[in-house]
Write a protein that binds this DNA or RNA. Structure first.
Lengths: 191, 191
DNA sequence: AGTGTTGTGTCAGATCATGACATCATTTAG
DNA sequence: CTAAATGATGTCATGATCTGACACAACACT
């Protein structure tokens, strides 16, 4: 019999997302979130470094999978194939979370600081992937350019998937995105 | 004879950058900045919506120039040429600011929130450029992909320029970046 | 001279965030 | 089987960020 109800952290995340969606990010105070989760504000800040972080708590669990999907394959394989692999893996992790991701995205878009934190997170992923590619022997330049382009393209696919309920799956969109990027550059560079 | 010393805003920016560089972003309070500029904290918040904004005050003056450099050219011109034009224009605006930009970048890198705000700003630019391209008749898809790739590449060039004092100019790096991006995609897609 | 506008000061207050210390069920050591 | 260590929480105090309301003095226009 634990002294306190368990999973305070999970209840805090849940309360936060609900209240943000219901009353907006600014109007929701940390006290509100904590009260709804049955704890004090001090406890909120023990679990999350700040009010924003409650929306990004699970982000760091994603990167290891991406890095693994780059490190795993044995034998010679192109950087583009590895990039494709990583992004597809990311797409498959995100796919089942669609409804949560949509709600989260709606909240994030209401606030510049949240948008920024989201982008900063993507930048860390991008850097991590580039480093993993470099460790597989590709040049820093190729790795970084490819990672930058890959994520730029992925984010576009993600947003179109979140906006369009009925089109192709995220994984499908991502699969097509990288080859299409090359096509676009081909076309635009041709005169 | 004005009632107060003029240019409070400029003095606030100057004080802020100096103090951030000297004592770090977190350790510097708005009161410190205001005191050094000879005003009160309340005045600081009249000029800047929050403590971060003092580092990004001039950002919105840049976009109009970029949009103009896309809208200006008459006659048929490829999207890639327009992208090249815009980024080169941006590079030329930034080039004389090198020392300020370096100091600013050093500060931004010390704080996730600042990094995020910087990225959010870039995202706004990217969206603005994409819109301008669309208005010139290119498809939304091509415009957005090209803008995304263009800025991803530009940021890489910018960072390498800031890190390397003695190499090529920013404009030169930018000029080479887009064609090189295509080369990288060619190489990585070829096997 | 009168009126409006502008930039600032002062003050009160809400919210965010952190440090220090206390509490108490669970776990572990002796 | 007791006693100490542990861990998640609460309470309190405090500093920092940000906003609203009101006041005031100089300037600008008529």
């Amino acid at each position: 019999m634990p002294r306190w109800p368990e999973d305070s952290r999970a209840r805090l995340v849940d309360s936060a997302v609900t209240l943000f969606a219901e009353h907006g990010y600014h109007s929701t105070t940390v006290d509100h979130i904590a009260a709804r989760a049955g704890v004090t504000a001090r406890t909120f800040f023990r679990h999350f470094s700040d009010k924003e972080e409650v929306l990004f708590a699970d982000d760091d669990t994603v990167l290891p999978g991406m890095l693994a999907s780059i490190a795993e394959p044995t034998g010679p394989v192109s950087a583009a194939e590895l990039m494709q692999r990583t992004l597809t893996q990311l797409a498959e992790v995100m796919q089942p979370q669609r409804s949560v991701l949509t709600a989260r995205q709606r909240i994030i878009e209401t606030d510049v600081a949240l948008t920024g934190r989201e982008l900063a997170k993507q930048a860390r992923w991008q850097q991590g992937v580039a480093t993993a590619l470099i460790e597989r022997g590709f040049t820093a330049d190729d790795a970084e350019v490819l990672s930058a382009i890959g994520f730029a393209i992925f984010v576009r696919a993600l947003h179109s998937w979140l906006a369009d309920n009925n089109g192709p799956t995220l994984a499908d969109r991502v699969r097509d995105a990288l080859p299409r990027a090359r096509t676009v550059l081909d076309v635009v560079s041709s005169r």
